[in-house]
Amino acid sequence: MADPLLNTLESIVTNATPLVIAAIGETITERAGIVNLALDGSIVLSAMTGFVAAYSLNTALTGGGMAVATATMLAIPVGVLVAMLVGALIALLIAVASIELNQDQVAIGFVLTLLGVDLAVFLGTNYARIPGPQALPIVFPVLSQIPVAGDIFFKQSGFTYLSYALIFGAWYYLFQTRRGLALRAVGERPEAAFARGVSVNRLRYLYAGLGGALVGLAGAAYSLNIKAGWTTPPNMQGDGWIALAIVIFGGWHPFRVVLGAYLFAGLRALASVIQRTPGIEINIMVLNAVPWVLMIVTLLLVSSGAIERALLLLPRGAQKWARNILRSDPPAALGTRFDPERGS
């Protein structure tokens, strides 16, 4: 632990982990045509429930005489599962409201995000600031020996390793499998998918639930690792909105989503480094605003066609390739309802 730069990069990867997980989850959900705007509330509520579940089980097990290390090993996965369940339930509620009750996904999501935070604060009051089980970093065999990269990427917690797996898994599933094709079809042209015999709404439920479970996992990554424990006010509040923006920045593509998450985490770290750099006197608040300004700028870039125009400057062969990577159109049927009876 000598080099400040390496340490900082390692911290960036750690801090980006929940953003990566939540944004990938949301990417999957949105690819299937459902927008889960309740990310912020989901993360906060699942963080709280995940911590409380892990804490309670841990206390019960150690109280029953089990060794602390064993108890933690059992308590953390249970906490994670509970958090994932909460995240999935919230996403499914949005899906039900949209599919069965024809309610606007954005409206339901917005209500749920506010409700999630209040519910977490209300129910979590008595669990604030108590030490509970935490997922510790695991030095990854072999890979951690790689110079530089080993220090940055492979001395992380299980959550971060899971996020690596998710990045590639999500990419593979979305773009290299038949099921992924169906998933995307449901979000792009549900009528066409339906005509081909895909049961559109069943898939939408499935991927809303799956994406929501990942959002819950992100919540657990906070309360069981990165911002261990539970606090009032919830110390991860606001990150859900950033994750939502990252999905757009990422053009609904796992690789670019990850890039966005690391970029945001990096900028935050930069703000914190600048503060203690003697000679630079910038108001802290200006630094705090940087990620949000960047959020607008990136959305502007991906929405205004600036990228499309820039692509034209590339040689023809590269254009198609680059367009595939930089594609930024949302799934065409995002946020709309599909009625199988009418086939539209």
């Binding site: 757009i248 705090n288 605003a289 959020m295 607008i296 959305l299």
Partner: peptide, 19 residues
Amino acid sequence: LGVNEIFGGVALNQIASLA
């Protein structure tokens, strides 16, 4: 510029608050 008003709004909220 085609920036979705939900996310533009969230960011502008934060920027106003920081202002």
